[in-house]
């Protein structure tokens, strides 16, 4: 059996689903961020798979754009994590919790 595009996409889809489930169900800010990170990495896997196996519906040379995209997604994910953790620390200093249900002076 050869591993082809469909297998990569299946794995990527499963990881993405797990990421969405974590991001929507967990109440701890840090856990939610982990879920978001999973979502982004699932996208990276999909990009790389599509890039490696070229367009699913189009012949052509291996488009390198997918590889390029992954580099940018990684960079943005790092920047996002930095801002998010800074805010989590700020909240923790004031309230001694990072539980989203208890950060609720404002109604959700």
């Amino acid at each position: 059996m050869t591993v082809d595009l469909a297998h990569y996409l299946a794995v990527s889809g499963i990881i993405f689903g797990i990421g969405v489930a974590i991001a929507l169900s967990k109440r701890n800010v840090v856990a939610v961020l982990m879920g978001i990170e999973l979502m982004l990495n699932a996208s990276n896997l999909a990009f790389l798979a599509f890039s490696r196996f070229s367009g699913a519906f189009q012949d052509g040379t291996e488009p390198l754009a997918g590889h390029t995209f992954v580099v940018f997604v990684l960079t943005v994910a790092a920047a996002e994590a930095a801002v998010a953790l800074a805010m989590a620390v700020l909240i923790y200093r004031r309230r001694e919790t990072v539980d989203l249900d208890r950060i609720s002076v404002l109604r959700w």
């Binding site: 993405f16 961020l33 978001i36 979502m39 798979a49 599509f50 519906f57 754009a65 997604v73 996002e80």
Partner: peptide, 27 residues
Amino acid sequence: IKYLISGAVAAGLMIYGFAFLFGTTGA
């Protein structure tokens, strides 16, 4: 933090969509 978390989830969905647009069209 609420803005950030909902924004980051939305961005995650969007980037997965970009992956499919790219994968389908090869561009």
